[in-house]
């Protein structure tokens, strides 16, 4: 019996409940906990999404660092899109490239794909085991491999520390 998956899910749902009811009073907290236990028993008895998650302090610190890196990239990507949309010539040069990731855990892959979707001019079209197909708005035809590894490594080097 592995308790790691339910524990992680419990923590996430409890945070959701506290923020939703906007209070820390016990009369809201205790029914919430009962409900969460019921929901986990009903819907997530044998889900394995958090199997790869590490629980070391290093992973925790990297999570915080990752959030800031991600927010920075998000804002940068939006200025990039804004520049392209506003310029009269519409400088787009799109294409779909492939990239390989080393991550094994499904949760890590989902976060990687979502981060790629939200950052400069790229988004994930298809995921097939360890190959991501990425649509990019500005590709460089001579150096496709460099480009794909650059896109992936930007987030993967942090996510490797958090997930297997």
């Amino acid at each position: 019996m592995n308790l790691k998956n339910p524990a992680f899910l419990f923590a996430i749902l409890l945070l959701f409940w506290i923020l939703l009811s906007n209070t820390l009073a016990l009369e809201f907290l205790i029914p919430g906990m009962l409900l969460i236990v019921l929901i986990i028993v009903l819907f997530c008895r044998n889900c394995k999404i958090f199997d790869g998650a590490k629980t070391t302090p290093k992973a925790f610190i990297y999570t915080l660092v990752y959030i800031f890196v991600f927010l920075g990239e998000l804002i940068k990507s939006n200025f990039d899109i804004a520049r392209r949309v506003l310029s009269p010539k519409l400088p787009v040069n799109p294409g779909i490239i492939e990239a390989k990731t080393k991550l094994k855990s499904p949760m890590g892959r989902m976060i990687l794909a979502n981060s790629i979707t939200l950052t400069p001019g790229t988004f994930t079209v298809e995921i097939d085991n360890d190959t991501l197909y990425i649509h990019s708005i500005d590709i460089d035809e001579e150096h496709l491999d460099d480009m794909s590894s650059k896109i992936i490594r930007r987030f993967e080097k942090y996510l490797e520390e958090i997930y297997d």
Partner: peptide
Amino acid sequence: VLGSLGLVRMPDLYTRIQAGTKASTL
């Protein structure tokens, strides 16, 4: 507004999703 402008100006579906998703999320 910039996201919707991208939706209008971009040439095909994939670039429109690029503009729409990112700008509207941020």
